[in-house]
């Protein structure tokens, strides 16, 4: 995959994090492949997906800038944290996912957020995602986390937005990712990222792009090292 005729203007690195079995992979598959996979493998370490999105809803007729979201879908099991955390570095956006039908997964989002804040960039754009909304819309309502408490938690913790999704039906999945993408794009326009800074989670289309990206990986390299 060469970057010479890249159909995007920016690449933003996103991570999908949260407890095991919340549907992180399903959300990623839904976004990147547009389907729901009832049978998919457990994620071991990390999986990768990508999708090119126009970061703004077009109303003006001005040519759109396209952003490639490179999406790292991480394993939920605690064991893998030392590996998955190394992927947090250099991420400019994150989906913090919990399962609406399992309270414990919501109780753990604080831990995930702390991890993320420790390692990722300080201005990382985070959306809180309550997944499996379909289970709350059936006759036998499985909801264990109310919208109010999730919103309240998001507000208190400086989260951009709270979105309830269903990877199964596709409901709001696009929206959740687009919120992150839009905010990252606003940050780019506001000059928040130094697109030439190897630590930045956003890469521009500039010449020598691949070299730049490689430097970025150098920053990613030292997992769990000091400083």
């Amino acid at each position: 995959m060469s970057s010479s005729a890249a159909p995007w203007d920016y690449i933003a690195k996103l991570v999908c994090i949260g407890d095991s079995g919340c549907g992180k992979s399903s959300l990623t598959i839904r976004l990147c492949e547009g389907r729901f996979s009832a049978h998919h493998d457990v994620t071991i370490g990390v999986e990768f997906g990508s999708r090119i999105v126009p970061p703004r809803r077009d109303t003006s007729g001005i040519p759109q800038k396209h952003m490639k979201l490179s999406l790292w879908d991480t394993a939920g099991q605690e064991t893998y944290k030392s590996v998955t955390r190394s992927y947090f570095r250099g991420a400019s956006g994150a989906l913090l996912v919990f399962d609406l039908s399992r309270k414990a997964t919501f109780q753990h989002v604080t831990d995930w957020l702390n991890d993320l804040r420790q390692i990722a960039e300080p201005d990382i754009v985070i959306v809180l995602v309550g997944n499996k909304a379909d289970l709350t819309q059936q006759e036998d309502n499985k909801r264990e986390v109310t919208r109010e408490e999730a919103e309240e938690w998001a507000r208190r913790n400086g989260i951009l937005e709270y979105v309830e999704t269903s990877a199964k039906s596709g409901e709001n999945v696009e929206k959740a990712f687009m919120r992150v993408a839009e905010r990252i794009y606003q940050n780019i326009e506001a000059g928040k990222y130094n697109l030439n800074d190897r630590r930045s989670g956003v890469k521009g289309p500039s010449a020598g792009g691949s070299r730049q990206v490689r430097l970025n990986a150098d920053a990613n390299k030292s997992s769990g090292g000091c400083c």
């Binding site: 995959m1 970057s3 690195k13 990390v46 990768f48 490179s70 691949s210 990206v213 490689r214």
Partner: peptide
């Protein structure tokens, strides 16, 4: 042929 580290990770995995 692949230079982008993200892609390398993916392909190698």
């Amino acid at each position: 042929e692949i230079d982008e580290p993200d892609m390398l990770q993916v392909i190698l995995g």
